[in-house]
Simulated scan of single mutants.
Amino acid sequence: MAYKIEFIESSDLVRVEFSGDATLDDRISVIHKICLDFCNATIAKTKILIDVRLITKLMTENEQKIVGTYVASREELKKAKVAIIATPEQLIHQTAIDTSAQLGHRIQLFSTENQALIWLNS
């Protein structure tokens, strides 16, 4: 699994791009890395843009619930806004998003980067 994490300082944006096969462990590891390296629960909200359009392995329904619950459990992400960009074929990611949102996080799914950035910056 390949991924790239980039912090765009001028906009307080953490941009993550996945490609190839991304296992449950890979995704949890990336979330953990974002929390350790880029987020602080005591500062203003962090904006996180996660692009999963190039992922070739979709998560199962159960894996999505695990990821959503893990995201919601991270104190560092309580003030964050998270935008996920996926292709229409990848809408299975909706379960992870719904699980995290139900647990109190601001997270949305988008089909274009432009839509995601507009929401993140609103």
Score class of each variant (00 low, 15 high):
I107F: 03
I48G: 09
W119F: 06
A44W: 00
H105S: 07
D26N: 14
T99M: 05
D21W: 11
A101C: 07
F7T: 04
K79H: 09
T95S: 06
K45M: 02
Q108M: 12
S19H: 08
A44N: 13
I92W: 10
I43M: 00
E61M: 09
N40I: 01
S19E: 15
N40T: 01
Y70I: 04
S122D: 09
G20C: 01
Q108A: 09
S10N: 14
H93C: 13
V30S: 02
N121R: 12
I85Y: 06
K57C: 01
T23V: 01
S111Y: 15
I31H: 05
K47S: 04
I84T: 04
D21N: 12
S73K: 07
R53T: 15
S100Q: 00
V82N: 08
L77W: 11
I85W: 05
L58D: 14
E61D: 13
T95W: 01
I55F: 00
W119E: 05
N40R: 02
G20N: 06
V16F: 06
T69D: 09
L117C: 08
I34H: 10
T69M: 04
L13T: 10
V71Y: 08
V52C: 10
P88G: 02
Y70L: 02
I118Q: 11
I50P: 04
T23W: 07
Q64A: 11
Q115R: 05
L58G: 14
K65M: 09
R74I: 10
R106D: 13
E63Y: 02
E9H: 06
I34M: 01
F38I: 01
R15C: 11
V52M: 04
W119S: 05
N114F: 13
H105P: 00
W119H: 00
N114L: 11
I118K: 08
L77G: 09
D21I: 07
A96D: 12
S19N: 12
T60V: 01
